[in-house]
């Protein structure tokens, strides 16, 4: 039985690679296809994982239809950009929360980061 953390990752990978909104049942089937046979998870477990991911701001759901349909709030690249931004940002209390190997952001680092953010904004 996979841990909740591993399941969260698996659910996000499915949602990140799917364009359509998915129901919990469809997600369960997609997970069963990804993993080895015999490791299938129950729909209730998928729902638990989805509500955890929703609380953390990774997943959003459509409530108009039943059953509710879920999709990723942001792409994987956007979340990575968010993480990098939090680590590199000088305006927060970062020094109290994290410790970087080298505090200063180098010119190359800044240029690469700016280019990636631009690409993300265009797509």
């Amino acid at each position: 039985m996979a841990s909740l953390g591993e399941l969260e990752r698996s659910v996000m990978e499915v949602l990140w690679t799917t364009d359509a909104d998915l129901s919990a049942n469809e997600l369960r089937d997609a997970l069963a296809l990804r993993d080895e046979p015999g490791r299938s998870v129950a729909t209730t477990t998928v729902l638990t994982v989805l509500s955890r991911l929703e609380r953390k701001g990774f997943v959003t759901r459509t409530r108009e239809v039943r059953p509710h349909r879920y999709r990723a709030l942001l792409s994987r690249e956007e979340h990575t950009a968010e993480l990098m931004h939090e680590v590199l940002d000088r305006t927060t209390d970062r020094d109290a929360a994290l410790a970087r190997f080298v505090g200063t952001a180098t010119a190359g680092e800044a240029a690469t980061l700016r280019r990636l953010l631009d690409e993300l904004a265009r797509s």
Binding site: T80, M84, V87, L88, A97, L98, A99, R100, F101, V102, E109, T112, L113, L116
Partner: peptide
């Protein structure tokens, strides 16, 4: 991520 970075939480 291509930016070379190391940090700890």
């Amino acid at each position: 991520h291509p930016v070379p970075l190391a940090y700890c939480v």
